[in-house]
Simulated assay, not measured.
Amino acid sequence: MAALTLVLMGGCNFFYEAFDESFDSDLVHEILGVILFVLWVTHLVVNRAWIKGLLNGKYNALRIVRTVINGGVVLCVLFLMISGVILSNHVFAWIGIESCTSFARTSHLLASHWYLIFVSLHIGLHLSLFVRGKVAMGVVSALGVYGIYAFIERGLWKYMTLQQPFYALDLEHGYLLFTLDYIAIMALFAVSMQLVMQALNRYFYIRNA
């Protein structure tokens, strides 16, 4: 799903510019968006125990952080799907929604960038499952440090605060660098989240010892 997210952030436009104008990037974007939504629904069904347990038990800082991050992902996915349906020119064009397109476009832009951050934080909650060994973690951490520069240079904070009203895909230096920058941004927030969780775990361990 993380790889599909990167493709949706710019890959479709890359293929449009690199190959042929007959390549319908909007259609591919819509199809991949639907696939991503189905994957998230499947993910939630598989992990439905988390949803059932939301109202059970006590909430400490660790559980609050996990709930906010997971809730943020779900909320962004819903906004992306709803706004995507409204903006659809292919897959859902038969619905015929012609109003609220301006709001939907703004919502899609805002939700997509917050989604990237929340997904990265979500990965950070389980980073030790994906990255094993000190060398691998060192590489991911170094990538995360570069992610600070990429986050600022790519102007993600502008999209997240609606200071950038439209999506400007910058492929001036090639799609490979674009992908590397976004992977680094994801690594930045994933590693940061892991450090936060380690600090909280250590705090509660010492507190309860």
Rank of each mutant, 00 (worst) to 15 (best):
L143V: 04
L143S: 13
L143W: 11
G144V: 06
G144Y: 06
Y146V: 07
Y146C: 13
Y146R: 06
G147R: 08
I148F: 15
I148C: 13
I148G: 10
I148S: 11
Y149K: 13
Y149H: 13
Y149R: 06
A150G: 10
A150E: 07
A150N: 07
F151H: 13
F151G: 10
I152T: 04
I152N: 10
I152R: 11
E153C: 04
E153R: 13
E153F: 10
E153Q: 14
R154K: 14
R154V: 01
G155V: 03
G155L: 08
G155D: 02
G155F: 03
L156S: 03
L156Q: 09
L156Y: 14
L156T: 02
W157V: 14
W157L: 15
K158A: 14
Y159S: 01
Y159A: 01
M160G: 10
M160F: 06
M160A: 14
T161V: 14
T161R: 08
L162M: 15
L162P: 03
L162E: 01
Q163L: 12
Q163E: 03
Q163T: 01
Q164T: 02
P165H: 12
P165A: 14
P165Y: 10
P165E: 10
F166I: 05
F166Y: 14
F166H: 09
Y167P: 00
Y167G: 01
A168M: 12
A168Y: 05
L169F: 12
L169G: 02
L169K: 08
L169P: 00
L169N: 05
D170H: 11
L171P: 07
E172I: 04
E172W: 03
E172Q: 12
H173P: 00
H173M: 09
G174M: 07
G174W: 01
G174P: 04
G174A: 09
L176N: 02
L176M: 11
L177P: 00
L177S: 02
F178M: 04
F178T: 00
T179P: 00
L180T: 07
L180Q: 04
L180K: 05
L180S: 09
D181L: 03
D181P: 00
D181I: 00
Y182V: 01
Y182D: 02
Y182S: 08
A184W: 05
A184N: 08
A184C: 15
I185M: 13
M186L: 15
L188S: 12
L188A: 11
L188T: 05
L188R: 12
L188M: 15
L188W: 05
F189V: 12
F189T: 09
F189D: 10
F189C: 15
A190M: 14
A190N: 11
A190Y: 07
V191I: 13
V191Y: 10
V191Q: 09
S192M: 15
S192L: 15
